[in-house]
Amino acid sequence: MNYPRDTLECGHSLAELSAYLDTGQIADPAHLDSCPECQAGLASLRKLSALGSELLSSDVADAGSGSDDWMQSILDNLRLELRPGRSIPLQSVHPDDTLWETEGSISALIRSVVDAHPGTAAGKCRLHGDVTTPGTLITVEVEIAVVYGHSMEERADQLREELARTLATHTELAIEAINITVTDVLEEQP
C-alpha cells in the first residue's frame, strides 16, 4: 500500500516514522537526527498528535461533566445489585429461625467507619477465615488512604479500636486481628 509521497527521498517512509512515534523503535535511529526530511516528517506527525489532544480535550469538554444529569440517568438505569458475598450465620433463639448477615453488609460497614474518620478513606476490605462457621477466628484486612499530614500510626490505632468496637456490636464474628494497610497518601484538596 504505497501512496505517492509516503516514501521520503532518504528512503524512509512516513509509516515507519508513525510507528517510531508510538514504539520508539526504528531500524536506524542515528539516521533520524541527521535527516532533515525525517525531522520534518516527525514534526508534522507530532503536530497532528498535539492537535489530536486538542480535539480530545474539546470532545471531553463537549461530553459534559460526570456529575451532570446524563451520567446520573445512566447510573439510575444500572440498578447495581449489592454483592451479598458469603452468608454469615447469626445465633437464633428459635430452632426454626435462620438468621444471616451478608459479608457485603459487613464490608460496607467497615468502609463507612473508615470513611467517617476524618482524613481517611477505605479501599479493599477482606474478611479472612471461614465466616460461615461460627467461632472461626477471623482476620480483617483493610486498605486505607490517608490525607497527607495526619499521623498514620495514630490514625491506624484509633481506627483499629473503632473497627473492633463496631464489629463486636454488629457481628458475632470472632475477630482475631484487624490489619490496616495504608496504601495511599492523598493530597489535601486545595
Binding site: L90, D97, T98, L99, E101, A108
Partner: peptide, 27 residues
C-alpha cells in the same frame, strides 16, 4: 435480626413458621 424473626413468628401464631432473616445492610 432476632427481634424481627421473633415478631414474625409471634404474628403468625398459632401457625407454625420457619423464618429466615438476612441483614444485607448495616449502618
Amino acid at each position: 435480626a432476632r427481634e424481627v424473626a421473633d415478631a414474625i413468628r409471634r404474628h403468625l401464631l398459632p401457625r407454625a413458621a420457619a423464618v429466615e432473616v438476612s441483614v444485607v445492610k448495616v449502618g
